[in-house]
Simulated scan of single mutants.
Amino acid sequence: MADADGVSVRVADERDMPAIAALRRAWLEERTGTAVDDPGFEAAFAQWWRVELPRRTFWVAETGSARSGFTAVGSINVVEIVHMPRPGARGGRIGHVGNAFVLASFADRGVPGALLAAAIEHARTRHYRRLLLAPTAGSAGFYRRAGFVPVGGDLLTLGE
C-alpha cells in the first residue's frame, strides 16, 4: 500500500535481498560519510540472508511502480525468539526489531513510522508477548514516541 508520497511498505522476499544489501551498505556510508570498498560484502550478505530468513521477517519500503521499476528506500526486520517452556509455564514468543534504516532523503516522509507500524502489526498477528529493540542514541526518541519504554540497559520494549 502506497502512502501520499508514493512510498509503499511490504514484506520482503528473496528478490529483495540485493536491495536490502544495498541499503545496508548505504547505512554505513551515510554514517561514515564515505564510500566503503568491500567487493565481497554482497556475497557475505547473501549468505547471512539465507541463514537468517527462516527466523526473520523483513520489510522493504520502496518508491516507483511496476512500470518504472521500484527503488528500495528503507527496511526493517524482526527476529522471532521462541522461549523454551519450563515446568509450570509454557514458552512464548517475542520479537526483536533490528536493522531499521531509511535513506536520509526519505526519513522525514513517514517511512520510518510506516516500517515500524508493519513490524508492530506483525508482532500482534504472531501474538508476541513483546517487541524488543536496542535503539541508537539518535533513534531512541522515535521509538519512545511510538510507545516503547525502557526495560533495562539500552533496551526498549513494547508489550508485556
Rank of each mutant, 00 (worst) to 15 (best):
T32Q: 11
T32L: 15
T32D: 13
T32P: 06
G33T: 14
A35K: 05
A35N: 02
A35R: 12
V36M: 11
V36W: 10
D37T: 11
D37Y: 06
D38K: 11
D38C: 11
G40D: 15
F41G: 11
E42W: 06
E42P: 07
E42T: 14
A44C: 03
A44W: 05
A46V: 06
Q47M: 00
W48F: 03
W48G: 03
W48M: 05
W49K: 04
R50Q: 10
E52W: 01
E52Y: 01
L53Y: 04
P54E: 02
P54W: 00
R55Y: 05
R55A: 04
R55H: 10
R56N: 13
R56Q: 11
R56C: 12
F58N: 10
F58L: 15
W59E: 10
W59D: 09
V60P: 02
E62K: 00
E62W: 02
E62R: 02
T63P: 00
T63K: 00
T63V: 15
G64M: 10
R67G: 08
R67N: 08
S68Y: 05
S68K: 09
V73K: 00
G74D: 08
G74Q: 09
G74A: 04
G74S: 08
V79M: 08
E80V: 15
I81D: 09
I81S: 09
I81Y: 03
V82F: 00
H83Q: 14
H83N: 09
M84C: 10
P85N: 10
P85Q: 08
P85C: 13
R86E: 01
P87G: 08
A89F: 14
R90M: 15
R90L: 15
R90S: 14
G92K: 13
R93T: 14
G95V: 11
H96Q: 09
V97R: 00
V97S: 00
G98M: 05
G98T: 03
G98E: 14
G98P: 01
N99F: 00
A100D: 02
F101H: 13
F101I: 12
V102S: 11
V102D: 10
V102L: 14
F106W: 07
A107S: 14
A107P: 06
A107H: 07
D108K: 14
R109D: 04
V111F: 01
P112S: 13
A114K: 11
A114L: 12
L116G: 07
A117G: 14
A117I: 04
A118T: 04
A118Y: 03
A119C: 04
E121W: 06
E121Q: 15
A123L: 11
A123R: 06
A123E: 07
H127A: 15
Y128N: 05
Y128S: 06
L133N: 01
A134I: 00
P135R: 00
P135E: 00
T136C: 02
T136A: 11
A137W: 00
G138I: 04
G138S: 09
G138W: 06
S139Y: 03
A140V: 01
A140R: 06
A140P: 05
A140K: 04
